[in-house]
Design a protein around this nucleic acid. Sequence first.
DNA 1: TAGATTTGACCCAG
DNA 2: CTGGGTCAAATCTA
Length: 300
Amino acid sequence: MEKKNGNGDWEKMKKEINELMTEGRDYAYQFGSASSQETREHLAKKILESYHKSLTIMNYSGDQGSPNSHGGGSPKSEDSDQEPLVINKSSKKSMPRWTEKVRITPGAGIDRTLDDGFSWRKYGQKDILGAKFPRGYYRCTYRKSQGCEATKQVQRSDENPLFFEISYRGMHSCSQAANVGSTTPVQNLEPTQTQEHKNLDIVKESLDNYNPQSFHYPLSSTPILENNNAYMLQLRDHNLEVFGSTSFSSDLGTKINYDFPTSGSASHSVSNSPSTVPLESPFESYDPNHPYGGFGGFYS
DNA sequence: TAGATTTGACCCAG
DNA sequence: CTGGGTCAAATCTA
């Protein structure tokens, strides 16, 4: 997500965003040790505020033909003003999108670790150019009955088959959303370890080739970008939930990356969790259940 | 038999 | 034109 046009404006914005994000991160840390519900809510608010501001700045820059692309995304500069967009249900592009990276643990049973409480139905699979493994396409089981538009794509990582990249699109509007939200296991990270560390751990681990004995789920907190009110509300609720509870299953590393469509198409980064995947088979059926993408990322 | 998965064909954005 | 995403008929499974 580097910005190229090294113009001064961008540098300035970069700095501001950096500060805001740092601020948000600090609040997140505090959140982890907050004891009262009130404090948590307050911190959650602050966190959201920080990200909101960052996003606003980014969106603004996007309008000016700025660099708004990031890893994997396609720099589409749809003129989206900084105005919160109204979600156009019919437009996939307007759907929020984020990715998550999940590591599976052979001994733990993928389906269990990855089960996010949602029911997904596979509707396609495709070989992707340059990828060793095919990508699976899933949509919410309740799409028909409840009009839930949530979908997700799952792809096994080329470099490390123990990692699955899951890309979510759209929020669940089905009845499951509420349930899952309240039961979503979220991880509680100890304040002693920084997120960076956790992420590094994941990477390191994967490089080391996975050690069954040590597990950790590095939740990377992901910024909640908001780009439209409806989604934001949902995200916010999820966050609060997440903040309050915890614990993701320990055997997977998760890395989340959100990508909102405001100014561009998706980019992503991924992650997710398969459920029943025989490690040997590239894709085979694994259970794509996964909670809305996870706010597991937000770290409390 | 209903619901889920597989898989080739089709659609469309880039 | 190519590749990603979706559709839908065929097939599988509980």
